[in-house]
């Protein structure tokens, strides 16, 4: 009895101390907060400059973009946006829907297939696993340009040229080892006892993947989701090689049609459309980065 009371008291003390500590920390953090905001804010200006510059350029008359003039446009050419949208043979509505299709399918494909492979590498034992892992890492290291031609020939033989299949199918087959390795590193950080306990309770590896690993890996999955969205959305080399008909072009490919090295370009319109092409990326980023923060609630499980 006496013992249990002391224990209780001890706990109470600890709780009290912890409470005080937290209060002190909050105070200190508020004080520091202002300084932090100042620092972060000034720093953010450096980060923001290119966007402001692009925004300004998207509203400038064509011959002002390259001069040594101020960032402020002498007159605002809003028509860069409206005319830019319709300038090319096919309107940007089409390019956006093409890009959206490719990107959404690719993100889904990446998340599913890469998390599968990562789960195998990080949590399951099977023979030759080290060998396959090394090969997977190797695919990260090879310069893309030398496999471009054999890959093109392969997709040509499959009859996939000028379709989205060469862009999407590999993503369902975990072609991007970056994400596998990323997820492996995160999965390996989860306590082993979780799967062991579940396995004793009769959970299959499939159930463990879905019911334990996935929910606990939201920060990693959200990070992978953000990256794959951005990278696929901005990818330009693969669409350049595999898409022929302008009707099938994605947004980054279309953006490059505005600019010619040796003749008249349409820079204002290019900048205007570039600004618009950032909107989906930023939206996706803002939504998904919330999931990274949510990680903290989950980690309470540990």
């Amino acid at each position: 009895m006496a013992e249990s009371i002391t224990t209780y008291d001890k706990n109470a003390d600890a709780a009290e101390v912890s409470k005080k500590l937290r209060a002190a920390r909050v105070k200190r953090e508020n004080r520091q907060g202002l300084r932090k905001h100042l620092f972060l804010g000034i720093f953010a200006l450096f980060m923001l400059y290119p966007l402001l510059w692009m925004l300004a350029s998207s509203l400038k008359p064509e011959n002002e973009i390259f001069g040594r003039l101020s960032i402020w446009p002498s007159e605002f050419i809003w028509s860069n946006y409206t005319e830019g949208w319709m300038r090319l043979q096919v309107s940007f509505t089409q390019f956006y829907s093409n890009s959206a299709l490719v990107t959404i399918l690719s993100v889904i494909g990446n998340l599913i297939s890469c998390s599968f492979a990562a789960y195998a590498f990080a949590r399951l034992t099977f023979s030759w696993s080290k060998f396959w892992f090394a090969l997977m890492m190797m695919t990260l290291m090879i310069p893309y340009h030398v496999v471009l031609i054999p890959q093109y020939v392969m997709f040509l033989k499959l009859g996939w040229i000028d379709t989205y299949l060469p862009l999407v199918v590999p993503r369902f087959l975990a072609s991007d080892a970056f994400f596998i390795f990323l997820m492996v590193q995160f999965f390996r950080q989860l306590p082993r006892e979780l799967d062991e306990a579940a396995s004793i309770d009769g959970c299959s590896p499939y159930k463990i993947y879905w019911a334990i690993i996935m929910p606990l890996s939201m920060p990693a999955m959200a990070t992978a989701g953000i990256f794959s969205f951005i990278w696929v959305w901005e990818d330009f080399l693969a669409p350049l090689i595999y898409l022929n008909d302008i009707q099938n072009y994605t947004v980054p490919l279309a953006l490059r049609l505005f600019v010619a090295e040796d003749s008249q370009s349409a820079y204002g319109q290019m900048f205007a459309m570039s600004i618009l092409s950032l909107v989906p990326v930023l939206l996706f980023f803002v939504i998904f980065q919330k999931l990274i923060i949510k990680g903290i609630a989950m980690s309470g499980l540990k």
Binding site: I149, Y152, L156, L240, I241, I246, L253, R256, E261
Partner: peptide
């Protein structure tokens, strides 16, 4: 007639690839 266009800088990469693929 299928019209296919890209910028100068991208043109030769794509051209070489299609040439290699005999396409």
């Amino acid at each position: 007639v299928s019209g296919e266009t890209v910028g100068w800088g991208d043109y030769w990469t794509k051209m070489a690839t299609q040439t290699a693929g005999k396409n």
